[in-house]
């Protein structure tokens, strides 16, 4: 049974249909990426999985159970955590407070401590900045805080929305290495990226989304060789 299964999901903003019946499967342990242009519906997909948006029709199945439309704080309890588009960090709070908020539903102080150490292990830079107000951090550091904060909730399914957007190439490399390491550590990852090259290199399988529909899917290695992909997303 797939960890996550989207069945014929349609989502609309008023009269505009953002997702036109997409079906996606993510197996436990995988890194799956959704690539596509701006406005293709990538973020909408993630936001629907977390319950921030409600589907019009179709289902979000998590471990076989229909979780479509349940409140976001309950999806967090199920182990679905997201680092949102634009990072969504609390710029007025310190880095530590941001991370503590990530563990909002965690009551066990010992576990919070252990999870903090884990975040520091993935992102040593975050530890250096721990007392700083998050708004004063560089874009790359903020991205690390956003991902670290998602890790604090002990995700089984980690959703990453454009983690490399607007970052310098060197930082992008660090972020993708962290994604590999987080996956090795046990989290299943659904990654949304415009940087199709890096996303395909760091994932097992990929779906290509165009104006709300899946147009291609398959193992990332194969898709990276597909001429249509190379032309449309890899700039060839």
């Amino acid at each position: 049974m797939a960890l996550l299964k989207l069945e014929n999901l349609t989502v609309s903003y008023g009269a505009i249909e953002a997702l036109k019946g997409i079906s996606i499967e993510v197996e436990a342990g995988e890194v799956v990426t959704l690539v596509g242009a701006n406005g293709a519906g990538k973020s909408t997909t993630l936001r629907t999985i977390t319950g921030l948006l409600k589907p019009k029709t179709g289902k979000v199945l998590y471990e076989g159970k229909d979780i479509s439309g349940i409140p976001t704080h309950h999806t967090v309890d199920l182990g679905i955590c997201m680092s949102p588009e634009g990072r969504g960090i609390f710029a007025n709070l310190t880095v530590l407070e941001n991370l503590e908020l990530g563990a909002f539903r965690q009551k066990d102080k010992q576990k919070i401590k252990a999870d903090l150490e884990k975040v520091f292990h993935f992102f040593p830079r975050v530890k250096e900045r721990i007392k700083q107000v998050a708004g004063t951090l560089s874009g790359g550091e903020q991205q690390m805080v956003a991902m670290g904060r998602a890790l604090m909730a002990r995700p089984r399914l980690l959703l990453l929305d454009e983690p490399s957007l607007g970052l310098a190439p060197l930082v992008v490399k660090t972020i993708f290495e962290a994604i590999d390491a987080i996956n090795k550590d046990g989290a299943t990852i659904l990654l949304v990226e415009q940087n199709a090259n890096a996303a395909l290199n760091h994932s097992n399988r990929a779906y290509v989304l165009e104006t709300g529909s899946i147009v291609l899917s398959g193992p990332s290695k194969e898709l990276a060789q597909d001429p249509r992909i190379r032309e449309a997303y890899l700039g060839e």
């Binding site: 977390t50 921030l52 955590c81 997201m82 710029a91 908020l101």
Partner: peptide, 12 residues
Amino acid sequence: YNLDAAKLMGIN
């Protein structure tokens, strides 16, 4: 500060 991000933290 950010309603959606707060929801993603598991805040009701």
